[in-house]
Amino acid sequence: MASRKSQPNRDNGDKYSILLPTYNERENLPLIVWLLVKYFGESGYNYEIIVIDDGSPDGTLEVAEQLQKIYGEDKILLRPRAKKLGLGTAYIHGMKHATGNFIIIMDADLSHHPKFIPEFIEKQKEGNYDLVSGTRYQGNGGVYGWDLRRKLISRGANFLTQVLLRPGASDLTGSFRLYKKKVLESLMERCVSKGYVFQMEMIVRARQLNYTIGEVPISFVDRVYGESKLGGNEIVSFVKGLLTLFATT
């Protein structure tokens, strides 16, 4: 069991459901879960981890089952699906089973470090924000393992997006965020894009709906294990998505 130290027991009714979509994350999943348990244990917030595995051929689900035995069925919930149906629907699927009033979305590949979650939560409380977004582009935020080319593309794409959409948040394509559950539900209903653009649309729609957005600088460390699933035509589909949002929102 996670060591329960003499930490403040913040029993104020708030509960945080972490959605972890996984596809071939056998090596990363135990590590991310361990880190989540560690930081939630230390900060004392009430939480649950929902693993949405899309039939990973590498046996991610078996690992998840072992983790469930170790950490308990109240902490680790498994909501697998038979085949790879994409990230967007994975979030919707996971959200349906979430019992928390807040939802945290993050990648399971260790590029998003759980140590920032307590900061997200504090930020949320500070301004009663509807959503808190991690940002690589401000303050102490940053990246690890990116070469100049990737930095240039990232900054360029971000600049273009800021100019065209004026979205009111600095990191649009990041997917490390905390939402009020109701807010996430209403956003999910409206968002239709895929891939990176999906994250962007979430923020843009949030602004449209006058939801308030807080930001917390995060460090983004490129995945150590496993393969990147987003292929070469990334940029093309990004630009397409950007223009679509430009014309429709």
Binding site: L31, W34, L110, G141, G156, N158, V221
Partner: peptide, 30 residues
């Protein structure tokens, strides 16, 4: 603007190191 922002883009070496150590710790504990 883009040039400047690329130049000041933080390299989080510390974060990567910390993560590596935590990975070791986690594996052992698990």
């Amino acid at each position: 603007t883009v040039g400047y922002r690329v130049a000041i883009f933080n390299d989080c070496d510390e974060a990567a190191k910390e993560l590596q150590e935590q990975i070791k710790e986690a594996k052992e504990d698990l």
